[in-house]
Each structure stands twice: as C-alpha cells, then as structure tokens.
C-alpha cells in the first residue's frame, strides 16, 4: 500500500492505495465520486475522463499512484458552485445526453477540447476529437451541437 496525496475538485485528499489501483477506482471507490464512470476495460469508451493538471485523461489508464501530487478535476468539480460550466449548460440546452452514462466523460473531454482549440471548433474537428468517447444513445448529433454551442459561447465571453 502506498499513501497518495492529491487535490481533487479543489480539496486536498489522501488515501492508501495498492500499486495496481487505477485512478478511476480511487476516485469512485476511495473518494466516492461516482460521476466518473467505467464503460469498458480497454481504454476506449471515455466514460472515465477527468482532468489531471488541466489535461483530459482517461482515469482507467492511469494508476492512482501516478496521480500522486496532481490536481484532479472530476465532473463533480466542473461547475462553479451552482453555476454550471458552459459545456454542462450546453449539453442540457441542446439535448446532448440521454441515458447520461457517457455524459461526464463527454463533458470533460469537450471542456478540454475547447480549451485546446481556444474555442475555434468546427463540426469535423469536434467529430474527429471525439474519437475516444463512445455514446450509444444520441448518435452524437446533439453532442456535436452542444460542444459547438459551448465553444461559441466560451469564445464570445473570453
């Protein structure tokens, strides 16, 4: 067992983990932040995407010990108090979710994508960037629309 310390959603946390414990396991079981989901076992579905030191990563592909000392943001920490993050708001406004299971990963990926492209996104880029996030419900139509809307909104206010 190894003791790890990190900041999760602005709060300092620590825990004892086995070497093999994945970051997603630590987040879900150790911290009981269950908004981050596990949808596959081969790092392809993207339901587990969180931000580590400001970058989107699949938390099923990182060991908890690797995240020692980092700053982690999960879906629970994305909103600013009661104010939804623009990506969250856009998903609601544009019906970018149905069953909601892939949604946290989609939103975390989308926020990172908008950041990386400085809000300048077109449909083809959004679709290509979503390679690592699988949704079975929406056919992606409204997810693409949501991300586009959030990107436009964020570059307007920036």
């Amino acid at each position: 067992m190894t003791t790890i310390n990190m900041t999760v959603n602005g709060k300092a946390v620590s825990g004892e983990v086995e070497d093999r414990t994945l970051l997603v396991e630590f987040i879900r079981e150790g911290l009981r932040l269950t908004g981050t989901h596990v949808g596959c076992d081969t790092s392809q579905c993207g339901a587990c995407v969180v931000h580590v030191d400001g970058k989107a990563i699949k938390s099923c592909t990182m060991l908890a010990v690797q995240a020692d000392g980092t700053n982690v943001v999960t879906i629970e920490g994305l909103a600013n108090g009661a104010d939804l993050h623009p990506v969250q708001a856009a998903f609601k406004e544009n019906h970018g979710l149905q069953c909601g299971f892939c949604t946290p990963g989609m939103i975390m990926s989308a926020a990172d994508m908008i950041e990386r492209y400085d809000g300048k996104l077109d449909e083809a880029t959004i679709r290509a960037e979503l390679e690592g996030n699988i949704c079975r419900c929406t056919g992606y139509h409204n997810i693409v629309k949501s991300i586009q809307a959030a990107a436009d909104e964020m570059s307007k206010s920036a």
Partner: peptide, 20 residues
C-alpha cells in the same frame, strides 16, 4: 429541456454500480 439532465451533467446520476 429535460428535468433529469441536471443530475447527469453534474455527475450526480445514481446508477447501480454507484451504490454501496
């Protein structure tokens, strides 16, 4: 727009595996 969305977009959905 959907009433149920708020819990899903904020990570507060409650799926079976979330329950202990």
């Amino acid at each position: 727009t959907r009433k149920e969305d708020k819990r899903f977009i904020t990570g507060h959905g409650r799926y079976t595996d979330d329950i202990v």
